[in-house]
Design a protein around this nucleic acid. Structure first.
Length: 276
DNA sequence: CTTAACGCCTGAAGGC
DNA sequence: TGCCTTCAGGCGTTAA
């Protein structure tokens, strides 16, 4: 579920709540979510460690413990982190709580995930994080220019939507925001990336930044699962122009009908009349 | 090298 | 009401 704005919202929430907290106990109810560690490994890795910082790169959440030790989490489709006051370490009352970090002050961080696609990896040093190597330039990076974006598009045969969704090229965008930003830029998602000209690349970049920043201000988009760290919903869903608007008349040209197509097994929503 | 298809897992929603 | 199918915001692996 979560894309850049949702992950950023979670990271900000975590920063406000768990920096400086000392981890006592880790309870793992779903082992498969630990990619490179056993529950015992994670417990000894975290024991008595303080969380010194939380950062985002792409859609990843990077927890930094003392002396560069790091945990990298990904929420995938339905994951969320919920911070609770109280030592809730049983999964009995909520069967979707998969991993619990219990702090020394008896507050807890719950990793909740219905579909259990979410992941956690541990690293002894943050210099060695594999995911960072494979993650392309951040969609909100200051040094991302229209020119750079066009360089990326130029050597790709695929359609512009799949290129924007490729985390190894540009990181942070998912299905919702790609649909929305291509609509805002009036670019046809089916257009071959290699045919994007510099004006379109600049337009895509400008709208990408505006939409992502607005979405962060509104604490992300809650369609179904996404929640903030305090379990509240975001509100960017109220701003959506095309995503899940199939059949609605286009808010821009008023002539086209928002249409849903499949690209790479995933839904794309766009206006066939004004996205060229 | 590239792109396409599938699998991971669970719940919600729609059709009949 | 119940059964069945389809769909879901992601991504890694395998097949072609």
């Amino acid at each position: 579920m979560p894309e850049l704005p949702e992950v950023e919202t979670v990271v900000r929430g975590l920063k406000g709540n768990i920096i400086g907290k000392k981890i006592n106990t880790v309870k793992v109810f779903k082992e498969r979510m630990l990619v490179n560690a056993s529950p015992g490994d994670l417990q000894s890795f975290c024991y008595n460690e303080k969380i010194t910082d939380v950062k985002r790169f792409g859609k990843y959440i990077h927890f930094i413990l003392t002396s560069k030790k790091s945990m990298v989490a990904h929420l995938r489709m339905t994951g969320k982190f919920v911070y609770v006051d109280g030592s809730k370490i049983n999964s009995d009352d909520d069967k979707f709580v998969r991993i619990v970090f219990l702090f020394s002050d008896s507050t807890s961080l719950l990793f909740h995930d219905v579909r259990t696609f979410g992941t956690i990896k541990i690293y002894q040093e943050y210099d060695t994080i594999d995911e960072k190597q494979k993650t392309g330039i951040d969609a909100l990076a200051d040094d991302l220019t229209g020119q750079k974006l066009m360089e990326i598009f130029k050597r790709k045969k695929a359609n512009v939507k799949s290129v924007l969704l490729n985390q190894q090229l540009i990181s942070g965008l998912g299905n919702i925001y790609v649909c929305e930003l291509l609509f805002a830029a009036a670019v046809d998602p089916q257009k071959a990336a290699s045919l994007i000209n510099i004006n379109e690349a600049e337009l895509i970049l400008k709208n990408m930044r505006e939409i992502l920043k607005t979405a962060i201000k509104l604490n992300g988009t809650t369609i179904s699962d996404f929640r903030m760290v305090d379990d509240k919903t975001g509100s960017f869903q109220e701003m959506l122009k095309v995503y899940q608007k199939e059949g609605v008349s286009c808010p821009r040209c008023k002539k086209g009908i928002i249409t849903r197509i499949k690209q790479n097994q995933r839904s794309t929503f766009y206006c066939p009349n004004c996205q060229m």
